[in-house]
């Protein structure tokens, strides 16, 4: 197996890619997908570290994996709500351009 540092490195790279995507893209759907990518990067780090400290057969230490399950749950919930927002935005603005959502601007 490769050293865990490489796994974490991959996780960091994916995280930064997702971050840049979330910060630069103006398409709301792509922004949401970038956030999913960031979550996935974090999941990867969890899995990697869990692999490093797996516990024993009698007392398994699976906190990392359980946390990943929770992150996946949260991601699913987030996507459901996020896509609902996108649909209502399309309905009201006829666009998914983030820059057009500026009603609360001063």
């Amino acid at each position: 197996m490769v050293p865990i540092e490489h796994v974490i490195g991959l996780s960091s790279i994916l995280f930064v890619i997702g971050m840049i995507g979330a910060a630069t893209r103006r398409n709301l759907i792509v922004v949401l997908m970038s956030i999913e990518l960031m979550l996935n990067a974090v999941n990867l780090a969890f899995i990697g570290f869990n692999r490093l400290w797996p516990g024993t057969a009698e007392a398994p230490a699976l906190d990392g994996q359980i946390f990943v399950l929770m992150v996946i749950t949260v991601a699913a919930a987030e996507v459901a709500v996020g896509l609902g927002i996108i649909i209502s935005m399309i309905r009201n603005r006829d666009s998914v351009n983030l820059e057009e959502v500026s009603l609360l601007r001063w």
Binding site: M19, A22, A23, T24, R26, V31, L98, E99, V101, S102, L103, L104, R105, W106
Partner: peptide
């Protein structure tokens, strides 16, 4: 808020994302 803080409310979501990061 109306004197100073409102200028932070730029309406540009990407700006908020930047600040958040």
């Amino acid at each position: 808020a109306s004197g100073a803080l409102k200028y932070l409310q730029s309406g540009l979501t990407q700006g908020y994302v930047f600040l958040m990061i």
